[in-house]
Design a protein around this nucleic acid. Structure first.
Lengths: 215, 215
DNA sequence: GTCTATAATGAGATAGAC
DNA sequence: GTCTATCTCATTATAGAC
């Protein structure tokens, strides 16, 4: 139940186009509902309604609520990890790496994706849920930690005078600020900030975190 | 249902000692269970079991799940807000305010309380839940924003050259780092940090945030 | 105020016709 | 693969004896 479900032993034949389409609609709906209400707050029925599918269909494709959740997170994880690694490589190619460059490479892909596909915005909130709930630590470790480790290593090289725990703790604060950026727009406004443009906010957050790490 | 329940119109007589005691045990249990599992994940039965009280009793004292949640958050909110204001005043009395001093005054009371009463540790996690879930924005605005506004104003005076949105956004990152400090111990370890002492971590976090704000 | 029993609802999951 | 109907269980909430 903690492992991702193994592929079916032998698939008799390839899934039909229609099957793939409903499958996608179900996962899109699951992504949005889980992002909006969290795992416990979401119900299979919410998802079924949003996908405009019968409840049984959600079970069929998802294999149960928990499994559906796993798969929903996993679906875009690889894409995100690759994009982050690519961004890091691009930053390297442009000359000497800076701390800001590394942090940007970690953050930007998520927001760039969201610009063209709003579904990535839901996925980002979903990532926030997974990252903050101890219950999903396994998922987090499997899908997000590997990339985090690479970035962490890069930061350590850029800050040779800083201690290892300092950098790790700082990195966690950086990630939490990233999640806050994705989820706390209302909170900022309730504290009286006129909303800056998102691009500005990202730049701010990166600057904030980089300065914090160098302290 | 969004407002805190009004005090009973006319209480016939004062609650007995025994009643007050069970009431406290119920709220202590609610605090812990809500902090561990969140609002949706928690059940009245979990709370009743932990308090060693019958389910009906939890309903009687709590007035329904949502009301119980509100009250549980409210119970310590005033104490926390006052302690923060006192800490700020103490910092002022010690001489010129520094940014680090202001941030410490905001963060430390929560951890100081937790040192002598572990229940405050649950409450801290509860605050994290409330602060990150849009659904509880009202509670957050009522109980935590007033103090936040005071601290925000102080920070604005200390950083006259910084823009208002910059400071607000930075403050949100600071708060998110505070919450991460309270909830992400495991995450830091899974990223390979040996745990620093809590006092060190708090000092780190304050230094990180102050440097970020000044950037 | 306390506690037992029970109502009423909504949840996840499954069986089986198509 | 799809979809309807149903099962089973856990939940919140309440009624009413003590």
């Amino acid at each position: 139940m903690t492992a991702l479900q193994a592929p079916k032993y032998k698939r008799k034949r390839a899934p039909s186009q229609r099957s793939l389409a409903t499958r996608q609609r179900i996962f899109n709906a699951a992504e949005q509902v889980f992002a909006d209400k969290g795992f416990d707050g979401a119900t299979i029925r919410d998802i079924a309604d949003l996908a405009d599918e019968p409840v049984g269909s959600v079970h069929h494709h998802g294999g149960g609520k928990e499994n559906l959740f796993h798969q929903t997170v996993a679906r875009r994880a690889e894409t995100l990890a690759s994009a982050r690694m690519n961004a890091l490589q691009n930053a390297r190619n442009k000359g000497a790496l800076t701390l800001e460059g590394v942090l940007s490479a970690f953050v930007r892909p998520l927001f760039d994706f969201a610009l063209t596909d709003p579904r990535w915005r839901s996925y980002a909130r979903l990532v926030a849920f997974v990252s903050t709930d101890k219950r999903w630590q396994d998922i987090s470790a499997r899908h997000f930690d590997p990339a985090a480790q690479v970035f962490l290593k890069e930061i350590i090289e850029l800050l040779p005078q800083a201690s290892r725990p300092w950098i790790t703790e700082s990195f966690v604060y950086f990630v939490s600020a990233t999640l806050a950026l994705m989820t706390s727009q209302e909170r900022m406004m309730s504290l009286g900030a006129k909303p800056s443009s998102e691009a500005d906010q990202i730049a701010h957050m990166v600057r904030f975190s980089a300065a914090g790490m160098r302290a």
